[in-house]
Amino acid sequence: MASATSDWVTPPKRPELIENLVSGVDRYNPSNVGILEDYLYHQIRSQEYDCLANLAILKLYQFNQDLYNPDVIVNILVKALTSVPFPDFNLSIALLDERLPSANPDEPDPLPTLLPHLTSLHSLLQQCRFPAFWALYRSDELESLRDNYTVEVVGFEDSIRDVAVRAVKAAFQRIGSKRLSSYLDLEGADLEEYVTRIGWRLDSSTGVVELPPNPDNQISSTVVQEDIKLPQLSKVISHAISAA
């Protein structure tokens, strides 16, 4: 069986420089924060994602409060949203120590206002309430998040659709296109095109989308029999031998 985490632990496209930072002691050196931040912006532009490298940025912020850069944090959290059901979002938040409100009134800190919104978005995704996610995401209240952050993240909406696709794929064999449309926030030709691209089949006469079988949407009743491994019996057997 394939590892579910190897790409998460070591993304195939992670450069060697970053690998050394993530795995070595140099990750604590504040002067390396720029390299990691540049790498984050590279991820944002090229639809890549490297959770552990981003956590390394937050670690440096945790230890060096003067490095604090709320824009970077928002971007990390936005990227982490796209990895649900993996726990990246909460892992990132766990590293954000409480801090004093910004002393400088000319440079308001956007994080305190955005953080509750991001958290709501995350919990909607976690609960698979995709229509509510899109409604909140497109609401007026979140305009600043869209205009200042997610618009820069190439393929952000598609990455969220991937989250929905993962959940649908596990739970459904066939799904009504109306329902699917509300999950993906896509309609008509866009939906058709998207569905075809990921290899699902839309029957236009019935309006039902058929999903290819995968390990999660095939179910069967089984009786699990007890499995006894030899080492469990080693004491009993060795005793029998020594007693003989």
């Binding site: 069986m1 394939a2 590892s3 579910a4 985490t5 190897s6 998460w8 632990v9 739970a171 459904f172 064999q173 066939r174 799904i175 009504g176 039902v208 999660d216 949407n217 095939q218 179910i219 069967s220 009743s221 089984t222 009786v223 699990v224 029999q225 007890e226």
Partner: peptide, 29 residues
């Protein structure tokens, strides 16, 4: 940190359009 995706529940189900099909794995004593 490594791991594989595993099923953790003995009750599994799948939705076929609007019909929920349920299957249960029972563990022998």
């Amino acid at each position: 940190l490594d791991g594989q995706m595993i099923a953790t529940s003995d009750m599994d189900f799948v939705i076929n359009e609007n019909m929920v099909h349920i299957a249960e794995s029972t563990v022998g004593r």
